[in-house]
Design a protein around this nucleic acid. Structure first.
Length: 540
RNA sequence: GCUCCGAUGGUGUAGUUCGGUUAAGCAUUUCGCCCUCUCAAGGCGACGAUCCCGGGUUCAAAUCCCGGUCGGAGCACCA
């Protein structure tokens, strides 16, 4: 009681002292901060990543880090793969280490040769160069050997129960008869590896802990029999390891120091280590990061496959898709994707990052190198009374002079967008055809089919306040389409307007641009040339 | 159902390990101004977070402890 009262009186005094200490430690810490700050700047320079950086890796030594990116070649790579691959590569580089690309091809039913290639191409596009490329299937013999070793160890057994039985027993946490006698398992395993069992007749299971609260430890499958034509091994192999078995062994043998994987594997970490323990193999360090998801854009291969099979989406490079080939086709740059991924960090929180951020990063990169060209949506004719035919020189970029200029022949007839025409007619405002002259619409002439907007010139003077619009000379007009891709889903529902095709006219020059060229259609948005008469809107 | 994980402005993150330098940095979005022959980019600025909630410990908590709530994941002869 007394103490309390005393304390109340003492508080101001204490605070004073604390403040003094703070002031003191502040100066100390300032000195420290300078040191730390200096070191940080150096680090950033070393990794050449001033824009965003991943947090330091635990237990990592410079020159001694090996990471791995282990995709299954069962589909086209997408932004989710990009996230994993970029993180793996970034850490490898940050510590002056190595990156291994390992195709996790342990299920002949899923893998296809074209997917190995697609993944290779995707990574190449992203600018990721693995130091080593290998397949899990390269080590199939080795994996078999380790499997046999586990059987001999009494750390694994052959189970011939029906899948349903296995499932229910696992749920209950009870083991089956097959687990009991190691000698039976030994016999059965010989039969299994000499191909005397049929598919679904027998599996090899890990002797985990059937009553563990972590269900991943309840005697998971290590090997199963799959009849299938494997892209690399064809029909030579029937006994295939599962991911749960292959991953830890491959990681350990490949010298991986840090295995980074998505969050849903967290509960398997215990199994991963248990397997390595029984085999006396070196244990890599494991970390998880959250899986990438977006609003309205399906990322899982299963969902994308469905969309294609149902004909909703035409191909794997449909610009609405998050596949790497689609993103490339749409006009996203690998640098932007990298920055974006790094901005997400190594968080474990499940979030849906905004695509707008990616677009903004992309825009800033492409803006300085995109020609500014004219496209007119929903064109109407504009006749300018008294305008003379001439050749005009248009700048290709407001401030990048390396992009030069282009010349266009104009007369008194132009196309402008209906929207603009109507607005300026209705409001009676003077406007300017960019780089040409100022006009005012005075009347609309309608013949049987078309409306023609008639305008008079109101001078050449360039005023900042006059609205300026893009135009296409009638003689130079070239029919053109722009594809606009939007989210495939609004909530749970398919978005019927996810793909819009905008018709219009562009300057004929556009038709000469090569596929892949990035441009900006003035007042319309950034686009990537897709063919001679089609561009895809990247973003505004 | 059982187990595990997460929760910071509209959105994405930094900071949480080792409580105090900053009641919260950056990016994006939105808006305003400047610049500009684009509704782009660039420059400047504004709005916007009692750091999920409730307790506790402490002179001091986004940070530590306890209890909730909400969200996600795993429980395959897929990876």
């Amino acid at each position: 009681m007394d103490l309390r009262r005393d304390l109340k009186n003492l508080i101001p005094e204490i605070k004073e002292i604390v403040q003094k200490i703070n002031v003191l430690s502040l100066s100390d810490q300032k000195a420290l901060l300078e040191q730390i700050g200096g070191a940080k700047v150096k680090q950033e320079g070393r990794t050449d990543r001033s824009y965003a950086h991943l947090p330091p890796l635990e237990y990592a030594e410079v020159g001694n880090v090996v990471t791995r990116f282990p995709p299954e070649p069962n589909g086209y790579p997408h932004i989710g793969h990009a996230k994993a691959a970029i993180i793996d590569e970034e850490y490898a580089r940050m510590y002056n280490g190595k990156l291994i690309l390992r195709f996790d091809d342990t299920n002949p039913l899923n893998e296809k040769l074209e997917y190995y290639d697609a993944i290779n191409e995707g990574l190449e596009w992203l600018g990721i160069k693995p130091d080593t490329v290998k397949n899990t299937s390269d080590d199939i013999q080795l994996l078999h050997d380790y499997g046999k070793k586990l059987i001999l160890n009494d750390s694994a057994y052959v189970c011939t129960c029906k899948p349903e039985t296995i499932h229910t027993l696992r749920a209950k946490g009870i083991s089956c008869e097959c687990r009991k006698d190691p000698n039976i398992s030994l016999d059965r395993s010989k039969k299994m590896f000499s191909n005397s069992f049929a598919q679904n007749e027998a599996i090899i299971r890990f002797k985990g802990n059937m009553s563990s609260q972590n269900t991943a430890l309840r005697d998971p499958t290590l090997f199963r029999i799959i009849e299938g034509d494997h892209p690399k091994l064809h029909k030579q192999i029937r006994v295939w390891p599962t991911y749960d078995f292959a991953a830890p062994i491959e990681d350990s043998l490949d010298g991986i120091t840090h295995a980074l994987r998505t969050k849903e594997y967290e509960l398997r970490n215990a199994l991963y280590f248990a397997i390595l323990d029984r085999l006396n193999l070196r244990k890599p360090f494991l970390t998880e990061f959250s899986r990438l998801e977006f609003d309205g854009i399906p990322i899982s291969k299963r969902k994308i496959k469905q969309l294609i099979e149902n004909g909703i989406v035409k191909s794997w490079d449909d610009p609405r898709l998050p596949t790497l080939m689609a993103m490339k086709r749409r006009g996203f740059l690998p640098e932007a994707i990298r920055k974006f991924v790094l901005s997400l960090g190594m968080t474990l929180a499940e979030t849906k990052p905004p695509i707008k951020t990616l677009e903004s990063l992309n825009r800033k990169i492409i803006d300085p190198q995109c020609r500014r060209l004219f496209f007119v949506k929903d064109p109407v004719e504009l006749q300018v009374l008294g305008a003379v035919s001439k050749e005009v020189v248009l700048r290709n970029h407001p401030n990048n002079i390396d992009l030069y200029v282009r010349k266009v022949q104009v007369s008194n007839s132009f196309y402008i967008s209906r929207e603009d025409a109507l607005e300026f007619f209705n409001t009676g405002t003077e406007f300017r055809l960019i780089e040409l002259f100022n006009v005012k619409i005075v009347e609309i002439k309608s013949d049987s089919q078309n409306q023609v907007f008639v305008a008079i010139q109101t001078g050449d003077e360039m005023k900042q306040s006059t609205p300026k619009i893009q135009w296409v000379a009638k003689e130079d007009a070239y029919p053109y389409k722009i594809i606009i891709a939007r989210e495939l889903y609004r909530g749970e529902e398919y978005n019927k307007d996810s793909l819009e095709i905008v018709d219009g006219v562009a300057e004929s020059f556009v038709s000469s641009l090569n596929r892949g060229t990035m441009i900006q259609f003035v007042r319309f948005g950034f686009c990537r040339i897709d063919s001679n008469e089609v561009a895809i809107l990247t973003h505004r």
